[in-house]
């Protein structure tokens, strides 16, 4: 009698198995979503590639910039710290634009009119474009703005700064990568 009882409890019906698999799939998807959400921004290794549609027209692809030191700056017109660092970024860009350095401005979670007004206000001349669908921000797992990624000549992320940058620090980081 006891052995019969044990046999009965160990038998699963097809319905039970399907229900179990569905529950497992559901939990798996939830877990994957949570893991992805809590993954930090990349701080080393190959920089995720992206194509930026520029405000001035045309596009710019990161992977086509190998051989240059690339500074990718995420910003928004509503962000005060971005405004604080904007003059320094532009100044350093003008110092290094002919020395194998490229600055790329990625306008994140903003409106086009305000973004264009910001670029005009700070007289920003390096390539800039909106992060359409916030896909670039997702690839770099940014949490807010400003965030700046320094990419070496081989296309690897070497430094991430998640606060406003100042001229001296920008020069120091760029020089370090240029001299490698």
């Amino acid at each position: 009698m006891n052995s019969q009882t044990i046999t009965d409890t160990r038998r699963f019906t097809r319905g039970q198995i399907i229900a179990f698999l569905i529950a497992l799939l559901f939990i798996g998807i939830l877990a994957a979503g949570l893991i992805m959400r809590h993954q930090g921004r990349p701080t080393e290794g190959p920089a995720p590639d992206f194509t930026l549609t520029l405000f001035d027209g045309g596009t710019l692809r990161l992977s086509e910039q190998r051989g240059k030191v690339v500074v990718v700056n995420f910003w928004a017109s509503w962000c005060q710290p971005c405004k604080d660092e904007a003059p320094d970024l532009e100044r350093v860009w003008r110092m290094y634009k002919d020395k194998g350095v490229l600055f790329i401005g990625v306008n994140w979670s903003d409106t086009e009119g305000k973004a264009r007004a910001y670029l005009a206000e700070f007289n920003i001349t390096y390539p800039n474009g909106p992060d359409l669908g916030r896909r670039i921000g997702q690839k770099y797992r940014i949490q807010g703005v400003p965030e700046t990624f320094f990419i070496d000549k081989q296309g690897h992320i070497r430094q991430v700064v998640i606060r406003p940058l100042e001229e001296a620090e920008l020069i120091s980081l760029i020089e370090g990568l240029l001299n490698e």
């Binding site: 928004a76 509503w78 979670s109 903003d110 409106t111 009119g113 305000k114």
Partner: peptide, 10 residues
């Protein structure tokens, strides 16, 4: 927030 205000203006 400022972004929402801008979006409403858009």
């Amino acid at each position: 927030i400022p972004l929402c205000q801008d979006m409403k203006r858009e």
